[in-house]
Write a protein that binds this DNA or RNA. Structure first.
Lengths: 235, 235
DNA sequence: CAGTGGTCTAGACCACCAG
DNA sequence: TGGTGGTCTAGACCACTGC
């Protein structure tokens, strides 16, 4: 077995995508159709498709089929641009959906970060964000409502940085970021409508006010093919 | 099919690892052994193992078996610490192996970045880096030898930042970083001794001198389970 | 050499989505 | 309701590792 069969298949679709005979968003033939055409079983087909998925060239939506991935958006955290802004600037169309919003008692980590007693209320916000109608990101945030009284009455599908600026004359300043490439936890995969266990990118972000208080702790779960992170370090 | 069989298996090993009945570096039973024990076929076993791999809990080495992953090392690029230093500080044991070193003509991207004509010589360096004897990272670097005359005579398994400091009184300063979660390209997977198509983390890093000249362009290919990236943004 | 993972066949049934 | 991907069986042979 010099080169495996799935490798040829990968190459085949890879070439179709590179030459734009398959464009972002278009649907691949069904696994069974591909199988007929190449005289291969579904196991082999799926190996090739999963590899292409890992490369970020294609993605699937549960039981709907396989699709060609759009270009990844570039996330530049140091720029402090909002999701809506940087997605728009790159020629895509962002949208946001609120999945949950509630007052919650702070757990240990959140309490420690926000310097409040464990169990004190924080605002929990759970959102799903889309690029060109494709869900790409699940966001779970814990907001320090002591610093932002009345924040829960705002329209929280809006950009938070907009709300901060308008209502509180606050801006995002310092932040701590942590990135990890890992599979999406089941809850995030479900929210994104994909099978659990698929590769993803997890980000933890802690946002500080200009007085070094913790404004917000943010957990983001990205489709791994949807984003590239750029950072410029200037001492 | 309420919860799939592979899910139970995942949970089983996940629990063993969490409770430290399986410790980092230890070998899992063979796929066939697991199959006997749980009355499952290898296809199902492998689905569970691949999911655990995507989570970063286990890893494999080509035809040698599956092993429990060690804790990820934390890479803090803004600290300017060398690989050797930050790995050591976190209680692991780093090592470096030089796979190739040669003078090469600069390609377009490198030439543009280094502000030299295309085809001018640059020093290419290809290294493999280990944490506790596990290969975790392939590095391909292009070094601006105009700024570092005689660099090619140094021992290039050493920390480059050490060499810079000692021989050239230079230090790493500004850098541009780009991260992407994607599968490892075939060359990198081969060098790491793992099957192609496995998830990985790709980093492009451009290092500048204090005079904003490009000192070095660095491409890193990490095992995705081996690293977490932390960055503090302070304006 | 025996044992490991890597690849593959030829089926099957299920859960979910769309028309 | 027909078609999709998701899961799974029960095999097989190959390439490589380690003894």
């Amino acid at each position: 077995m010099s080169t495996p069969h799935y490798h040829h298949l990968q190459q085949y679709f890879s070439d179709l995508i590179a030459s734009q005979q398959l464009v972002p968003g278009s649907k691949l033939p069904s696994e069974r159709k591909i199988g007929e055409q190449f005289k291969l079983t579904r196991v082999t087909i799926r190996q090739a498709l999963k590899n292409l998925e890992a490369e970020g060239l294609i993605y699937r939506q549960n039981r709907r089929g396989w699709f060609v991935s759009p270009a990844a958006v570039i996330y530049h955290p140091a720029s402090h641009l909002s999701f809506n802004l940087y997605v728009t600037e790159q020629g895509f169309s962002p949208s946001t959906e609120k999945l949950a919003q509630q007052i919650e008692p702070a757990n240990e980590r959140i309490a420690q970060l926000m310097n409040i007693p464990v169990g004190n209320p924080v605002l929990y916000l759970h959102r799903r964000r889309y690029i060109d109608q494709r869900p790409v990101l699940i966001e779970k945030m814990y907001i320090n409502q002591n610093l932002l009284p009345g924040i829960e009455e705002e329209d929280l599908t809006e950009s938070l940085s907009q709300i901060l600026k308008r209502k509180y004359q606050q801006e995002y300043r310092d932040m701590d970021l942590s990135f990890k490439s890992t599979s999406l936890p089941a809850h995030a995969a479900n929210d994104l409508g994909i099978a659990a266990g698929q590769p993803g990118l997890q980000i933890e972000r802690i946002n500080y006010t200009s007085h070094k208080q913790v404004l917000e702790v943010d957990y983001e779960f990205w489709r791994h093919d949807a984003v590239t992170i750029n950072i410029a370090i200037r001492d």
